[in-house]
Design a protein around this nucleic acid. Sequence first.
DNA 1: CTGTTAGCGCCTTCAC
DNA 2: GTGAAGGCGCTAACAG
Lengths: 354, 354
Amino acid sequence: MATLKDVAKLAGVAPITVSRVINDPQSVKERTRLKVEQAIKQINYMPNSIARSLVTNRTNTIGVLLSNIANPYFSDFILGVETKARELGKNVFICNGMNYESAMSNINLLMEKRVDGMILTSFEFDSIGLQEKLLRELERLNANEKHSVQFVLVDPSPKQTLLTSIQIDNYMAATVAMDHLHELGHKAIAHLSLNRDADVWIDRFKAYKDAQGRINIPLNTEHIALIDKEDVRLAEEATYRLLLTTPRPTAIFAANDTLAVGALQAAHRTRLRIPEDISIIGIDGNDIAKHSYPRMTTVVHPRYRLGELSAELLIDLINGKEDTASLLIKCTLQVNESTGPLLMQTEGINEQHD
Amino acid sequence: MATLKDVAKLAGVAPITVSRVINDPQSVKERTRLKVEQAIKQINYMPNSIARSLVTNRTNTIGVLLSNIANPYFSDFILGVETKARELGKNVFICNGMNYESAMSNINLLMEKRVDGMILTSFEFDSIGLQEKLLRELERLNANEKHSVQFVLVDPSPKQTLLTSIQIDNYMAATVAMDHLHELGHKAIAHLSLNRDADVWIDRFKAYKDAQGRINIPLNTEHIALIDKEDVRLAEEATYRLLLTTPRPTAIFAANDTLAVGALQAAHRTRLRIPEDISIIGIDGNDIAKHSYPRMTTVVHPRYRLGELSAELLIDLINGKEDTASLLIKCTLQVNESTGPLLMQTEGINEQHD
DNA sequence: CTGTTAGCGCCTTCAC
DNA sequence: GTGAAGGCGCTAACAG
């Protein structure tokens, strides 16, 4: 593969002149420039970014570490990151980090590749301890004097960190979902969520509890179902248990769309009509919700925008802007077909117990 | 950030010795090694892969270019690639290339980053001409004497290429789907597909036509619906048109699961029972199919395995194995709930026209 | 087993 | 405007 030298020889100039044509064309006389440009084309020269990075100590590359690339939640997010990053002249590399080990290994990989910064999305490792450990590690890398790496954390848990972060307002999103159900007249509302100690689930659960409290419904533990994995089948099975309780819930607030789809499956298979017999609402606004039957009512996260914002924030940090504040992102209700008003007969059942 | 030299100085050895401790520990006496290892830990040294790559002309990194990261089809594929690549000591970078321009730009990016090889998945640009252009370009890059880059193409279209490729047997997959419907007694089978000239769609359509021919059903153009984009809504709308034809099809063979889900939506909304009133089958085995109600019968692509194979093949090529043959991948039928036997009453309607 | 020398391809610095 | 020298951090090749 051709090098600067080759081009220089062909064009009859010094290597540095070729370098200038590439990096700062105006600094070279037009005649020389044209000569060089032609030589570049002729031997199909392509700059070696490896060599360049070694000198400049910059790779113009950012890394994105996802907790799980197979999670549809992240597709739009990445598109947003990529689009904005490309717009700002940065390349993007994507890595998977499904557990503490693979996350750490990929962060090290990205460090070795000397990315200028990283975006890390909501990690949920087995223990909150591991998550804290990771956070401290990142803070250490960030504080490193030479070649300090910049980080942007998306919805980290625990929230307390010195690093720049973008928080999703999970409590608000869940409150919006609950308010919607309340406005439709539902009182016996079940909550389907994950048995994890990450803030995202804790906040959504707290919003559920508080919302029920506001309409004077005490917490009914039979109406809480927590599963171990974000999995449609597990959510379906948990929902069967919810549907066997008395009074039967008239609505289910699922902590995200994947779980909501599981609830939908269970409702279908118990021959319940949706939303006449039971309303179901999720959070996220994934494709999985858009493609369900009936279409899922959900609280939409602006994931693409979130990606754009993350990229912008990170690149600002890389460019030395100090005043880049952490952000809090809001979500919006999207009413579709899976929620409807509480009907009389079910209301009757419900009121027996009120 | 600490360098080899720093470590060497601290440990009281030559830089090359530190290098050896990292790359070939056995070649160093244990006492020296321990001394060096301690120094590495002490100043938190991390190799600079940029510098290393500049010397070795190897990055130990492969690139994966997807036509669309948001397509659920690719999630499992990437996981397979990553797992196998890591196992074989390679890192993976993922890029998006949704059209000719972004594909080319990302290929150039990966070239500048000097990846050792790339895996490219089914590109579908607007015209077959652009696809050929890309193929020729890749062949040129591969043929380059110095720093020749290795490529593995997954299901390329057109199929004719000098490069190593993994072909999915699309004709066979579609035949399996059609045979399943025929065995259930269906004759009036509609085909829902994309209006694109990539081989994947052409092969599946051809299999449909041939299968119908084998049971002596002439091609009914009213039972063919082609849409412009892989989109559930468009598929749904096209299906409404299919359902208005006389005789109404008793089964729909969708060219992939996304389209099949659209067909499902249309059937639900026309109050048709699935599979009693209409059977629907897809191809791919995506999550979208697994999570539909009723669960979609489909022809499953071994996507994870496909990813592993691609990675293996590419790394073999990088390591200079010459005899790595191109592969043809087979799919397997997965019978779920969306297909069932042709019932009498519909059979009657059907036979009026036979 | 360990060290010396040289150079990967490019850019920074300082001359001309 | 252009060029020559030197070095980024690492390893290959050759010595000792």
